[in-house]
Amino acid sequence: MPVNPELVGRQFPAAAPYLVGREKVREFANAVFSQNPINLDLDAARAAGYSDLVAPPTFPIVVQERTLAQLLAEPDAGIDFTRVVHGDQRFSYTRPIVAGDELTATLAVTSVKSLGGHNMVTSESVIVDADGKHVVTAISTLVVRGDE
């Protein structure tokens, strides 16, 4: 089943807020082999002017994931999860994520393209803080492999 081209422009309801925990930041930083004290050590983060540990730049995937799950579950999307491959990924920041942030992500589909029997679905998840101010936008292209 091809991906529904009418998804373009569709905006999903905001996902449930995500509270960034200090130990979660540490755990994620360790998992991506960070040795940076600003990711790991509270004194170092505070000495650098942050209120708490700073998350590594790919951390927003954890928050974005909730919105991608909404997209994949959309009944008329035509996206077969078992055929999905991650094509590209981008994070565009207004400010870094810091432990203690409460983040809310809202996804909109920006493009659906067909190429060589595959479908490419690009979405933007805009992530804001508890004051509604922009933190980061996470942009993904998912490649939905064709039948062959």
Partner: peptide
């Protein structure tokens, strides 16, 4: 994971992970 580790050497050089403004890759 590959995208996550790939940023680390550059961030070590920058010193502060909070300086990252934009990061993109194609798989």
């Amino acid at each position: 994971l590959t995208m996550g580790i790939a940023a680390q050497p550059a961030i070590e050089w920058l010193g502060d992970p909070g300086r990252v403004l934009d990061y993109q890759v194609r798989f």
